[in-house]
Structure formats: C-alpha cells, structure tokens
Amino acid sequence: MTAISPAAQPRRRRIRVARLPLTFVLGGLILGISLILAVFPSIFAPYDPIAMDYNAILAPPSLSHFFGTDSFGRDVFARVIHAYTVDMQIAIFATTGPLIVGVIVGALVGYAGGLTETLFGRVVDAVISFPFLVLVIAIVAVLGPGLTNMYIAVGVIDWVFYGRLVAGEVKVQKRLDYADAGRAMGYTPARIIFRHLLPNAITPAIVYWMTDMALAILLGSSLGYLGLGAQPPAAEWGVQIADGKNFMSTAWWISVFPGVAIVVTGLGFSLFGDGLAELLRTKR
C-alpha cells in the first residue's frame, strides 16, 4: 500500500443526474412542478378560482372545464391549481419552524445527556401520548380557526419529533473518537455540537422533514375539511373535498381531483425524502 492510491487521480466532482437515486429525481420533479404551480398559479389556471358561473354549475369534466365545476360553478381545475399556493405554504410553514427548533434543542439535549435528557424524554412522552390530530384540533379550537393558528398549533407539538430524532443521533455521535479529537483540540462545545456532530446527526431529521411536509398537507387538508384550517371560499384541497362531500355520487370530480393532488404531492415529498436519505448517507 503506497501513499498514492488510484483514487489520487483527479476526480470529477460534478453531480450527474444519472447517478442520482431515481426516487430523488422523480420526487424532485413532482415537487419542482408543485412549487412552480404554487408560486405562479394564475399562469396555469384558466379561470379565477372563486369566480362563480351559474350557467355551468356541477358541470362534468370537459374541454372547457378540465376537472369540471363545483356547486357554485367554480372551475375545479383552477381551484386545484390555486390550492397549491396554500397547501405548499402549509407544508413549508408548518414544518420549518419545528425543524429548526427541534434540531437545535435535540442537539443540545443529546450532547448534554443526563438529567436534561431525562426531562426532555418526559416532555416527548407527554406529547406523543396524545394523538397528534386531536391535540392540534384542541389547540386550534382554543385559538380559533385559520392558517396562522394552525401553524402555531403544529409548531408547539411537532418540534418534539425532530428533537427526539436529533438527540438520539447526537448521543451516538458524541461517543465517537472524532468528537473526542475535537475536545482534545480544545474546541468549544458549541463548535463540536454544531460543526462536527450535527452534520452527522441531522440526516434522519431532514428525511423526516420531507415526510412531515406530506403529513402537514394532510393535516392542513383535514383541518380545512373540518373548517378549522383555510377558510372558504379560499381554494384549498381539504376545503374543496368538503365542498364536494354532498355531491359524491353525482359530481365525484369536485372531491376526487383535489384528493389526487394531495396524493401526488404527498408522494412527491415521500419519494424525495427517500432519495435524499440515499444521497445523504454517510460513507465510512
């Protein structure tokens, strides 16, 4: 074994699309399109999402109304497209705060260990002993319906899951020799935790974040359906499904197309998360 191995030749660091995991590419594609639709819905939607057309009430899918119209004569396709804005916003806003708070708290708790960890464990137990949806509904019921209160309700609970994930990983990483090497080098705990341990501990949290965004969309739609999230006449998939619930046998398209949008977007997040897990796997 000489010092110069074959690996010493200049290597290409360019990321080739063909080398990326298929799930990552597919999920990325779905999410990319979803984001474009969310930011520029008016470009793609042929009608105003809240404009009512009494001449075309409950019209089935056709060339002029791709997804048909609802009981107010609103174009379902336009509403599904415009709902991307709200639902992608829910996915991102409801989860990013908990991600950041959970990661920071989890990293500190995992590194500190001892009593801090025990106390945090009790908090986690207390939160996860309630069904997530019931807890969120309870908080929203107290604060009042609407998107902002939904973000608050989710944020209060959701960070705990990230915290638990990261704390567990940091606990493993801090026992490895490279953490000791940092200590022997005289690095501050903050540097060791955030520069050394966290990059090696954060992957599960990032992957969970993707799943969590899918869950947030589901939750947002559920609350919208129950009338606790986005308020009518706003275009939001859960609200739309609720709009169509009385017409399921006669005008299935009102509820089915928003449902398909939820499934496809959720799938996008899940695939992307899977691919990301593959991509971020630590090589040893």
Partner: peptide, 13 residues
Amino acid sequence: MIFQDPYSSLNPR
C-alpha cells in the same frame, strides 16, 4: 492525541 480507530476518529463529513 492520536486515536486508535482510524474509522471513527475522523469526521466523515
């Protein structure tokens, strides 16, 4: 200090 385990003593990232 130089550590025993060449695998865990270097930060993989």
